[in-house]
Each structure stands twice: as structure tokens, then as C-alpha cells.
Design a protein around this nucleic acid. Structure first.
Length: 339
DNA sequence: AAGCAGGGCAACCGCGAGAAT
DNA sequence: TATTCTCGCGGTTGCCCTGCT
């Protein structure tokens, strides 16, 4: 049994509908040359003279000064120099924050509508806590506002309206099944959860899925199985896909299929990974799955590109229990099939 | 009325990334 | 190419207000 699942990842970020994360730059060879390290060693000069700048709440006079200056002169593309020019004893970052979150025109505060709630739910489910992106979808709202609203109200609202998950959870970790490990990135997502509603034996909608993610409970163990690699080359436009004959009961045949691309020169390698769920209180299932993993066979599907694979899987989603999610915000050829 | 606890929110902090030099 | 500067982001902090005892 493997609790880790590695997804090949060609870009710098990766998001699932229920959690997202940024790829951290762990390249030691370049990291040692990064400005951050150099700055730290040398003692980075602060962006402003902390001793001579005012901190804390803004007074109406300061607000007026800042607003007046920006409306007349603009920011000039330099927030650091702005407070001096505007006659303010404030840090440039503080000015920027004040302007963006409070003073700029058409800002709205408080009284989030039901529609806005739903947008936040939906976007949080698909991209996670990228508040600036979420804010971009809500006219007049700032990322700070949404973040505060989420942390203080929406989260509680969700918890209050949804029952805690009784039995099932999906703990997902990353693992690699890539045929080209040199181009792979490994992500550790052990604490993340995938959506699944045990009472209906179905995966959850994005809205519902947030709840599971937020609960932070991992009462169940799940495992992943490798489904092999898809190889899609312009020169050899075949797909080689390992698959497994699944003769398990329908009730256990629930999970998530992850497809992701790794481009290497003219060819693209796509990793296919299926994550399945199991009942912790049924260890027999657990062993049964392990046996199944060994019975993988290979087939060749001619003339399928990534788009065709998507369509193929899409067209196979005839059951209402299935859903296919593409990452609308990313450009990678990556999607998930819930089944 | 005073003290305390919790919630809400504005502001701060530190970091990564990209632009500029 | 290496270094520095600046911006923008998300997480965190801390103040203030409100309600409860």
C-alpha cells in the first residue's frame, strides 16, 4: 500500500478543486544566489525608516492627504517614494494597503450578498485561498475584505450548515509515476482532503467539498494506484495506458483520476493516477486493492492527444455520479475525473 | 459598573516573484 | 549574469467593540 501519490507538474503552480498550492523554489543551487538570501546575510535595508514612520490606524487627515495626492498625481508607480511626496509619515507599503483596501474609488465594505457568498464558495473550492483572484471576481471587494469575511463568517457559516463527515475522508499525498522523473516535481499534500460524501457514496460538489477540506479531519486512510503513463508524441502519436480491470464492487469503485502533462522537447508525457477511497474499518478491502494493483495490463490507444483523452473521459461520464473538472485558471493540460 | 472573553477587522509582516540596474 | 529594488500576496497580529457574567 502506498500513501503517497506523485503528480508530474510542468508549471510553477498546481491547484486542485479543494486545495491549491504554489510550488516553492527549493532549488538550492539557485536559491543561494537569490536576493532574499543575500539580503538576509547583509541585513536588508528596510523599505522605510521604521523609527520615523507612523503606524497604526489612519487618521482622516492622513486619508485625505493620500487620497488627494493619488487622485491628482497618481501613484507614480513607486509606492516607496509616494508618502514622502504626499507629505505623509507612513511606510509606502502602508500607503498602498490603505489606498487599495479603503480609499480607492468604488470600494464596498460589509454586507456580502448571497450571490457573493456563492462566488466565494465556488472560487475557494476551485483555487483555494487566493484572495486576490477571488476579489477580482467581486466588484468593489478587496482581497483583505474577503479574507476577513471568510475567516470570520463564511467558514463558520459552512460549518454550521453542514454536518461533519462521519466516516470517509480522502487523504491525498503526491507520488510519482512519471516515466521522466527528471522533469517531475513532487508535492506533498498529505494533509489535504478530497471531497466525498459517504452518506450518498458520491463525491461532493465544489461547494460541499470545501467543508471537507476545512474540517481538517483525517479519519480514513486511502490509497492511490498508479495507472501508468500516457505518452503522446507528435512523432509517435500513440497513447500507452496501463489500466486495471476493476471487478470490485461499485461502492468501492470511487475515486479520483488525475492527469497531468510533462512536456519534454517535442513529446509530452502524461501521468495518469487514480486515487481511490477505502473504508478504514474494512481492512479486507485494503488488501484486496493491493492485489488488484499487481494485475495491471497495458493497452495502446492510437491517435489520441490530450484533448482526445479529455473528450474520451468526458464522454464516459454518463453517470450522474461522474464529474469532470478542468482547471480553468491554469493552462496546463490537467484535469480530474471524479467517478 | 467593572472585568473578561470572543469576534471583527484594519493594519502589519515576511516572503516570492519579477523588474530594474 | 548577478544583484538590488519594488510590488503584491497571504498569513498573522493586535486593537477595538460588543456581549456576557
Amino acid at each position: 500500500m502506498s500513501l503517497s501519490l506523485i503528480i508530474t507538474e510542468p508549471e510553477n503552480s498546481f491547484s486542485f478543486p479543494f486545495f491549491s498550492f504554489k510550488k516553492q523554489n527549493k532549488d538550492i543551487s539557485t536559491k543561494t544566489l537569490r536576493p532574499r538570501e543575500t539580503d538576509r546575510e547583509m541585513g536588508r535595508a528596510p523599505c522605510c525608516d521604521k523609527a520615523n514612520v507612523k503606524r497604526g490606524p489612519w487618521s482622516p487627515e492622513e486619508d485625505a492627504k493620500l487620497k488627494d495626492y493619488i487622485e491628482k498625481q497618481g501613484t507614480g508607480g513607486n509606492w516607496i517614494a509616494l508618502p514622502h511626496k504626499a507629505g505623509l509619515r507612513r511606510c509606502g507599503k502602508s500607503c498602498r494597503l490603505r489606498w487599495l483596501n479603503y480609499l480607492r474609488p468604488n470600494i464596498r465594505h460589509g454586507d456580502f450578498t448571497e450571490e457573493e457568498d456563492n462566488i466565494i464558495y465556488s472560487l475557494f473550492a476551485s483555487i483555494g485561498s487566493r484572495w486576490s483572484v477571488i476579489a477580482a471576481h467581486l466588484q468593489g471587494r478587496t482581497d483583505n475584505d474577503i479574507k476577513n469575511y471568510w475567516n470570520t463568517k463564511l467558514k463558520k457559516k459552512l460549518i454550521a450548515t453542514m454536518a461533519p463527515p462521519p466516516h470517509h475522508h480522502l487523504a491525498i499525498a503526491t507520488s510519482s509515476s512519471s516515466a521522466s522523473p527528471s522533469s517531475s516535481s513532487h508535492y506533498n499534500m498529505i494533509n489535504s482532503l478530497l471531497p466525498y460524501n459517504p452518506s450518498t457514496n458520491q463525491l461532493l460538489t465544489p461547494h460541499q467539498g470545501i467543508m471537507m477540506t476545512m474540517m481538517g479531519q483525517q479519519q480514513q486512510l486511502f490509497y492511490q494506484e498508479d495507472m501508468g503513463n500516457l505518452v503522446n508524441s507528435p512523432n509517435r502519436n500513440n497513447l500507452i495506458m496501463s489500466h486495471q480491470e476493476d471487478n470490485q464492487e461499485q461502492s468501492t469503485n470511487k475515486g479520483i483520476m488525475l492527469l497531468s502533462d510533462v512536456r519534454s522537447g517535442s513529446s509530452t508525457t502524461s501521468t495518469v493516477t487514480r486515487v481511490k477511497m477505502e473504508h478504514r474499518d474494512h481492512d479486507d478491502h485494503h488488501h484486496h486493492h493491493e492485489e488488484d494493483e499487481r494485475s495491471m495490463t497495458s493497452v495502446v490507444m492510437e491517435d489520441y492527444g490530450m484533448e482526445e483523452i479529455k473528450q474520451l473521459i468526458s464522454s464516459s461520464c454518463t453517470s450522474s455520479n461522474n464529474s469532470l473538472w478542468f482547471d480553468e485558471n491554469k493552462t496546463e493540460d490537467k484535469f480530474m475525473l471524479y467517478y
